[in-house]
Design a protein around this nucleic acid. Structure first.
Lengths: 221, 221
DNA sequence: TCATTATCATGAGCGATGCTCATGTTAGCC
DNA sequence: GGCTAACATGAGCATCGCTCATGATAATGA
């Protein structure tokens, strides 16, 4: 799924072929992340990013189709890093039930919010971006960002999330739908947790885990 | 709480005193809502709003301190309308338990998403606005928008939401915290529901109710 | 009634933004 | 060296949010 034959970042105008170009692209992404971390989304201007990355503004637009694409590429890099880290932790700790797994996912997310520059602002893509809706659909051509995340997570955790008993009589809840909903909730609550407290409000992080546990637990309701 | 001695919309630069001015202000808000509904947040430019409202751009800035304030005022108007409608329905149907009440709140929210222009994009305030963080704190000087909503909702539903048993041993979960978290989740899932389907995906709306029911239900977990 | 003053309305224009594209520069090959 | 294709560059364009000098209008006093 989500085959990306043309490289690590979908909406690239030109893919860096030479080593030097690739480094420049990485520099641009890093500069964006740092700027985001330091001054927030409002300060993320293409001119400033280019200045910090020490590339002329034109070069930025050789790689990215626009500011949206730059942001999307950064979100995608964040997602890749998160999935890699989560996969390692799942492998290490081998959680037995859904609750342990969601706790793990939340903890890893929180860890990245604290550690990775710009992750606190963007994570996997601004959910309510002001501009054109197109921004949301760059990670995956059809699904929006959180859906793509849910999909990737779904393959990661396998069939651990079976359809819950006691769900709608017309066939039970779709596990992928549940995952999607859980993603959306977790994102929202954690976003709040880090808006309230730069280090992530512990009470809200706990509540996030509780929401997920209760929502994803088997049983009626 | 949240006393607003200076009028219906906090960040107004000048409050309309004459009838004609008040109508102009309302026209500006209506134009914003229509524009939002038709073309989304990205098309919401002050010039276009002024053009549609048939006021010169300067007049817009006589009332509002800036674009953020305009958006916030619209969000606030949405909130007032929602709370009024919800209060009426609660009065009519007198829900006995939390589940019935949250269902009601969700249904009324969905109804407004369908009926009120611009509500689908804004509802009570863009959660992840690109620009300065200030935009979030206009509805209430201290709390962000969803928190203000949660607070107002809290007074509306009274003590129906008691602290759940089996919560943290160190004193039980704070009901207002729970309400806040529930708000955030509901907002996120419903936002998704209307992103997927302009009329609101029924399955996602149902899942939203389920999330709230499960999260807010008494009992351990 | 007409000055005078205070208030409101107006839109040209400012700085900044996202982005383009003509022009200059380099790399690779014969 | 001459030629060509690929890349790098930043002045400049349209548009944005927003201001503020100027003109219109209402209120006040004699």
């Amino acid at each position: 799924m989500n085959a990306r034959p043309e490289g690590p970042s979908g909406p690239l105008r030109r893919r860096p072929v030479q080593r030097r170009s690739a480094e420049r692209l990485e520099r641009i992404l890093d500069a964006s992340a740092r700027l985001l971390e330091e001054s927030g989304y409002g300060a993320l201007t293409t001119r400033e990013v280019a200045r910090r990355a020490e590339v002329p503004i034109g070069t930025l637009y050789q790689f990215f189709t626009g500011k949206d694409a730059l942001v999307a590429a950064l979100a995608e890099r964040n997602l890749e890093r998160y999935l890699a880290r989560l996969a390692r932790r799942i492998e290490c700790e081998a959680p037995a039930h859904v609750a342990a797994l969601t706790d793990l996912a939340v903890e890893e997310f929180v860890a990245m919010k604290r550690a990775v520059p710009g992750f606190g602002v963007l994570d996997f893509g601004v959910v309510g971006p002001p501009g054109n809706r197109a921004e949301q659909h760059i990670l995956d051509a059809v699904l929006d960002n959180n859906a793509a995340v849910a999909q990737r997570l779904g393959t990661l955790i396998g069939g651990m999330l079976e359809s819950r008993e006691g769900a709608d009589p017309e066939g039970g809840a779709d596990p992928s739908l549940a995952l999607r909903v859980a993603m959306e909730c977790a994102d929202a609550v954690l976003q709040l947790a880090f808006r309230v407290d730069p280090d992530g409000d512990p009470a809200l992080i706990a509540e996030c885990k509780r929401v997920l546990r209760r929502y994803l637990a088997p049983g009626p309701g």
